[in-house]
Amino acid sequence: MNRDIKNEMKIEFSSKSANEAFARISVAAFASQLDPTIEEIADIKTSVSEAVTNSIIHAYPNRDGIVKLSAKLLDDEIEIEVSDTGEGIENIEEAREPLFTTKGNLERSGMGFTIMENFMDKLKVESIVGIGTKVTMIKKIKKNKSLENTY
């Protein structure tokens, strides 16, 4: 696999719900350099929104914390990392199960990780209780083959 990083970015922001839109729009704007389809951009936006919302709700339930968001553009993919230094996840396997939630009282659906898994090509979740959580996602961006063939 070609791991040549073409471009990268990093943002840090407070764990405030108003930043959910800011986060997904920032990544979408950055990803646009790879000339993705509308469908691919929508998948990225939804997945970033899920990961960032998880940090805001679960990592820092009773306090403000910092959410870190970074993205790397490679030849034909974007790698996105969302991390926090919050509560951490006790059982990652269980957390990734569809419909599993610890925040049913907040009307959370338990579909966050399932959506990330479905919309991205790769999803890695690392977490240590009391230290924090890091979610890494990769989305392949298909090159516009018809355009390449033209020239």
Binding site: T46, T53, E107, R108, S109, G110, M111
Partner: peptide
């Protein structure tokens, strides 16, 4: 124009 899993929770609720 945009919905994530929070929308599922809203509608079910």
């Amino acid at each position: 124009s945009f919905m994530d899993s929070a929308g599922i929770g809203l509608i079910v609720g």
